[in-house]
Design a protein around this nucleic acid. Structure first.
Lengths: 213, 213
DNA sequence: TATTCACGTTACCGCTAGTAACAACGGATG
DNA sequence: CATCCGTTGTTACTAGCGGTAACGTGAATA
């Protein structure tokens, strides 16, 4: 039969693709985001051209590898933001979810956040967008959540997007620094960040003597 | 005389080094952060080994190139934070200073923020620190300013560092997104971010109907 | 049987970062 | 004057990268 064959082929191809992705993930977890296509092909027991047939491009492979983890993280964050508690608790839960993720699998995190940029290829590649796509996506997701649920007045959508990207950036930068230095346990970091978002900077008093901030 | 000769040589070397850095800057501004050592050498009218003699490494050249701009930006931010106005105005001035900088010279900004990672070299290179060093530095600077001037209670230093890195990350991510999409003029972005820092998320009301945030 | 199609290979291209080896000039020193 | 030294500069090379062209192989379809 024809269709059966075609479907078998398709499913076999997808299975193979998953296998290749898992091999790639092993290598990336071992060698970091700079892992070479040769190394990935060797780990998968094949040679380079096959990788290029499946993913077209190193960026394609990395993108395919990224969406899986990104999807998982976005789902977890959405769940945290949907919990039936008050806003502060939900924000803390979301922060903790993100920080727990990067704490548990820092290599995955680094791969997602610092993917290698294009090198020699003349590939157009939207210039200026080679910043980590995960951050952009998280920012947009949070922006829609905020716009959906919070009353921000007239320029609601604009404010929501600024705040979404801003909050995600805060979480990311603080998490990146914390992951490198580990200056305090996770729950304290979560509390400090939530305090900052809850207007800590606005309400704190100036220290005596200095010019104030 | 001996010392005079040595000093002449030293100053000549430093002058040459500055010339090379300026050539490198022209190339980076033209070709982006992926500029090759060959291209930089050609722009300077010389060949590669000289660059390596002066800077040892591509990372060395890029670091030398980065400190100049970083220093300038840090100075401007410090000036904004030292203005004799109230805290909100100073924070807005600092945000605006940063955003104006990245708006005026986006190529410099991109070079500072997304420097090419190490490639083949087995150079130890503090793993996990290849995130943009500028962000780390800005975070630390802001942390010391906060710790010096704001009364944060018992765990002052820890909170100040978390807030410093968090605020810098917020500014960075929002600025990066804004630079790509330009959804609003700069002053509105500044106001939205300051509102967020002033507890906007904590005080806004839930929208009717939804689960709230 | 002949075609088709994905899987797989070897061998190559142009590029990169980085280096070894050598030449030439100028001032300090015997 | 001859010699050494430090700097500037060169050419020619290595090893590795991303990516590709050309070529086999084996199984299912027509």
């Amino acid at each position: 039969m024809e269709t059966t064959h075609r479907e078998d082929q398709r499913s076999a191809t997808e299975r193979r693709r998953r296998e290749l992705l898992e091999a790639a993930e092993r290598v990336v977890l071992r060698d970091g985001p700079g892992a070479s296509m040769n190394a990935i092909a060797a780990e998968a027991g094949i040679t380079k051209p096959i990788l290029y047939r499946h993913f077209g491009d190193k960026g394609g492979l990395y993108r395919a590898l990224a969406v899986r983890h990104t999807d998982a993280l976005v789902d977890a964050l959405r769940a945290a933001l949907d919990a039936p508690t008050d806003r502060r608790e939900r924000v803390e839960a979301a922060l903790d979810t993100y920080l727990a993720a990067i704490e548990t699998r820092p290599q995955v995190y680094r791969f997602l956040m610092h993917p290698a940029e294009e090198s020699g290829g003349e590939r157009g590649f939207d210039v200026g967008q080679h910043s980590a796509p995960l951050l952009r996506r998280l920012g947009e997701e949070l922006a829609t959540v905020i716009a959906e649920r919070v009353d921000l007045g007239a320029d609601r959508e604009e404010r929501a997007r600024v705040w979404g990207h801003g909050i995600v950036g805060m979480m990311h930068a603080a998490g990146d620094w914390w992951l490198g230095e580990r200056p305090c346990p996770r729950e304290r970091l979560v509390r400090h960040l939530a305090d900052l978002l809850w207007g800590g900077l606005a309400t704190a008093q100036d220290l005596a003597g200095g010019p104030g901030l």
